[in-house]
């Protein structure tokens, strides 16, 4: 018994030793696969501030984490467009003090003053993502231009799809020619029927790393985030990326500071660090989402114009979310 106590004491001391002393900390909550570990480590070394880094895979999960934790638990978060609107409405995020951000001018003005936060009082753009269709051309030769092309029977168990209810139900709505933010019961019912048809072809729902399914040849088709698609293409040349003609989702993820955050200054330091050209470049080299830093543009101007003209933001639909919830439960 004494030996066990001794052993545990030693372990405790060991774990104490491993903890380097920092000048402060910042509690960050971000999307999975969004910032490379190296970038965080560099920040910790450069500023001597410890980053407690947590992740989420959907805006809803983020919202739940913020509202169920006691205030002051998290400092910096990265909500998308409609979630920013909702969080402003619910008084969950702070107005940003832009004087603390030296690198603010690096932001491409195309991404500023969006309708969810018209004056950028509460948020500044970090990265943008679109949904795309991906096809492994080695195994699938049919022309694919629309979500409806994914319904073919021969694609049974061959599609990977994002595990995100707003995106997936939105896709089903667009496939039927509706808006992706539809709240009409009948139209949603049609979308549900469409999804039930597609369901047989879906191998798995995954938002965290759908690329793995394509790289490991688990599936030949998918509806996934653009950066995931680009990485998959880097690993497997026969993958083609397609913007569906029915429309697709654009998700603009933003920096936001949580109300009553305890480490605001450190959060600003971290934002300012991420706004730096060299850091920003490092991030999109590893996770090739659309960079909002004008000096690190990684998408051609034409493509960017095409995306901004044709993509749709997910919008806040208020209490209609419960209908979406139910459809989601029914599909799974």
């Amino acid at each position: 018994m004494k030996k066990i106590v001794l052993l545990i004491t030693i372990l405790l001391i060991l774990s104490g030793c491993s903890a380097k002393s920092y000048d402060g900390e910042v509690n960050v909550l971000n999307w999975t696969s969004y910032i490379p570990q190296e970038v965080i480590r560099d920040f910790e070394n450069e500023y001597n501030i410890k980053v407690n880094y947590g992740t989420y895979s959907s805006n809803e999960e983020l919202l739940a984490k913020i509202s169920s934790s006691s205030s002051g638990t998290y400092d910096l978060i990265f909500p998308s467009d409609y979630m920013i609107e909702l969080m402003i409405e619910r008084d969950m995020i702070e107005p940003l003090d832009k004087t603390k951000l030296n690198n603010i001018d690096n932001i491409n003005s195309l991404f500023l003053k969006q309708k969810f936060d018209k004056t950028n009082k509460y948020s500044l753009p970090f990265l943008a993502a679109t949904t795309t269709i991906v096809v492994n051309r080695k195994n699938i030769k049919d022309p694919i231009t629309s979500y409806n092309d994914l319904l073919k029977e021969e694609y049974k168990n061959n599609i990977i799809i994002l595990d995100d209810q707003r995106i997936v139900i939105g896709m089903a709505l667009q496939a039927n020619g509706y808006s992706m933010n539809e709240t009409d019961k009948d139209k949603l019912d049609n979308a549900k029927k469409w999804l039930l048809k597609l369901n047989k072809n879906i191998k798995a729902f995954d938002s965290d790393s759908p690329k793995t399914f394509l790289i490991t040849n688990e599936v030949d088709l998918g509806v996934i985030w653009n950066a995931e698609a680009i990485i998959a293409k880097e690993e497997n040349e026969s993958i083609e990326i397609i913007y569906p003609k029915d429309g697709f989702a654009l998700s603009l993820d933003n920096y936001a500071i949580v109300k009553k955050a305890k480490n605001k200054d450190n959060a600003y330091k971290f934002i300012d660090y991420l706004l730096r050209d060299d850091v920003s470049k490092k991030i999109t080299e590893e996770y090739p989402y659309i960079n909002t830093n004008k000096n690190c543009q990684n998408v051609s101007t034409d493509e960017l114009k095409y995306i901004l003209d044709n993509a749709t933001y997910v919008e806040n639909i208020g209490s209609n979310i419960s209908t979406y919830d139910k459809i989601w439960a029914e599909i799974k």
Binding site: N27, T32, N52, G54, D206, D208, S209, T212
Partner: peptide, 19 residues
């Protein structure tokens, strides 16, 4: 768990899908 309280299962859970 909360922020900064990474334990092995949570660390693995966050990695399991990305590989």
């Amino acid at each position: 768990a909360g922020p900064g309280s990474n334990t092995l299962p949570l660390y693995i859970y966050s990695m399991i899908k990305t590989g």
